[in-house]
Amino acid sequence: MKIGLYFGTFNPIHAGHLIIANHMAEYSGLDQIWLVVTPHNPLKKKSTLLDDHHRLQMVFLATEDYPKLKPSDVEFRLPQPSYTVNTLAHLQEKFPMHEFSLIMGEDNLNSLHKWKNYEVLLQNHDIYVYPRINTEVINPDIAAAARIHKVEAPVIEISSTFIRNSIKEGKNVRPLLPEKVWQYVVHNLFYKK
């Protein structure tokens, strides 16, 4: 089975994440998309994150009606901070019958050369890249690598940061979140401060 791994802090998961994940499940040749909730992205401040279990629960709520989308907490049990190359090695060992690929935006592709052991990722895994607005190719060698697949997915410019800031300001962002996620956020008074 071909599994696409879509990593994120999902703080919170929003409609844009679902649109991209579903598009990849339907149009890229991948059989399933696992939304991997990252406990701590080495490039982000941990203090801004909701607890891991809340973010995982929101991903579960957002994906439960999509049979090809699965929440994953695999990184919760791995050493922190999480590095994609380590997570992939762990998954490959645990699920040798699956073929794992990465899903990322063009902006992440541009910073791939900063990732731990990025050459191993490029050598051993397909990478499915979705477009972002105003992203120019900084490293053409990486962008042209044989295992990079550009997918003509919808361009989504919704950010979790924008959603968190809007909630803090008392704005109604309900249309940007899956309904069950919106209800969970409101019930728990998340992002108010």
Rank of each mutant, 00 (worst) to 15 (best):
W34A: 07
D51C: 13
Y66Q: 15
P12Q: 14
M1P: 08
P71K: 08
L176C: 13
D126Q: 14
I33G: 03
V181R: 03
S160T: 03
W34Q: 10
F7A: 06
P96H: 13
L189T: 09
N11S: 10
N86K: 14
G170I: 13
I19V: 15
S47W: 00
G4R: 02
F162T: 06
L102M: 13
R77A: 13
H125Y: 11
L69T: 12
L109P: 08
V129I: 11
T84R: 07
V155Y: 04
E64R: 14
Y6G: 00
Y118D: 04
N139E: 09
Q123S: 11
I148F: 07
M104N: 09
S28T: 03
L102H: 09
V185T: 06
N188Q: 06
N172F: 08
L5D: 08
P79K: 04
G105M: 10
P39H: 10
V120N: 08
V186R: 13
M58F: 10
T63M: 01
N172I: 10
I127Q: 02
I163T: 07
M97R: 15
E157R: 11
Q183E: 07
T38H: 11
P140A: 12
P79G: 02
L122K: 01
L189A: 12
S28K: 07
K193G: 00
P131G: 12
V155D: 00
F76V: 09
I158N: 04
K68N: 15
L189W: 04
V120S: 05
T84F: 05
L18V: 03
H40A: 01
V74N: 05
E64D: 10
L18C: 02
Y130T: 00
T135A: 10
V36F: 01
I163C: 08
P12H: 15
N117S: 12
V129Y: 03
S160V: 02
I148C: 07
L50C: 13
F190V: 10
V185S: 04
